[in-house]
Design a protein around this nucleic acid. Sequence first.
DNA 1: GCCTACATGTAAATAGTTACATGATTGA
DNA 2: TCAATCATGTAACTATTTACATGTAGGC
Lengths: 218, 218
Amino acid sequence: MSTRSQVLELAILGRLRESPVHGYELRKHLNVTLGAFRTLSYGSLYPALRSLTERGLISAAEPRSSALGGRRARIVYHLTDDGREYLDSALASAEPTSWEDDAFDVRFTLFGSTDARTRLRILEGRRARMVERREKLRQSFRRTSRRMDAYTAELARHGLEQVEREVEWLEQVIDTERGTRGALDYGSLPTREPRDPTTSGDANGYSAPDVTQTKEQL
Amino acid sequence: MSTRSQVLELAILGRLRESPVHGYELRKHLNVTLGAFRTLSYGSLYPALRSLTERGLISAAEPRSSALGGRRARIVYHLTDDGREYLDSALASAEPTSWEDDAFDVRFTLFGSTDARTRLRILEGRRARMVERREKLRQSFRRTSRRMDAYTAELARHGLEQVEREVEWLEQVIDTERGTRGALDYGSLPTREPRDPTTSGDANGYSAPDVTQTKEQL
DNA sequence: GCCTACATGTAAATAGTTACATGATTGA
DNA sequence: TCAATCATGTAACTATTTACATGTAGGC
């Protein structure tokens, strides 16, 4: 059982691996990267930070107020050695909880700090899960579609389609992982409708960024 | 705020409009049609049924046990007049809560009992919501994509694509709605007898699918 | 002068799940 | 006979959100 708060903890530790941050900014970051729309409330974030601090995985640094002017003192959190150790072992695991709905996104986001074999195992686990879901949907759709009214059927069809696309996406990512064996280039992933390259130019064509160096440490 | 339980209530009443059912089967039905994967637990369902009963919107009929053999007595719930009235007014509304994530699916499922104008307003509200989300994602993607590592960016790109497809789907449904003005034809899908387009406003013209009958065969 | 964004936290309320209690029937 | 499915329910627990409390700084 990957409780939501465990996933949140992982996300926090993962972000803290990059650099220390304070709560307010952490929240903004998490709202952008994960969830996309799931809004992380302070009522979840701050208790999580406290819990992690109590367990010695992170540590709070009250900064010398000055320098930035008179803003309310920000409490900057950073990973402790224990925290880094804990995070590394968490990132090396590839159990079913890693490809559960919520957890998967977080794990994927942290693939930059995950070794290639673990990445592949998680991706394959996720794919198996999605295929399973797809089959279940297909079956229940075939069995019941003529007893459904048109709207219910259309919604089911659309839901099925979304899952099918999820599987296709995973397949492409897995292929890329297998092909490149570490050097990541997602610019080569086919986009559904080739977008106008003049807009935001490099949006699709980044060559492997700093990920490689982080990964090399493993 | 469409609380989850309010959405659940709507789904229950909507299903009961078709025909009376008992709790166990209601759960199965809701697990198939909505959610697709969100598992509705008894701990949610039965309290909801009790609450609806207490408010007089549904009523529980303890069936004469006989006839079916010795199974544990099933409690069959059916809509009361008050319940039908309440449901009808709920189905006639098209407020923002109708196109919130969870609520939308339920409302869409019940489009068969919703008049054409309300359907369109809900669909357009939903589309606006999705477009808004898409724009937010695009912006935050463009702003931050070069500061992200490849995996985070790829996940964001994929998320954006899913939302784009959602918008496209809505657009198609809206077109179909506009074109047919009541008679629904979602293409190759097995549909019941096409509705008479002249009776606008009340579109629930299908004969009730019989769920209880199959049980009797056992 | 007011609103928004920055910034941290807590208490109370609410929502939701899991585990349990109970028990019959069917099929392997 | 053992597991699975049918069938209803509750109590305890866990999780999550909302509202509140507090205060600064900068732009309009």
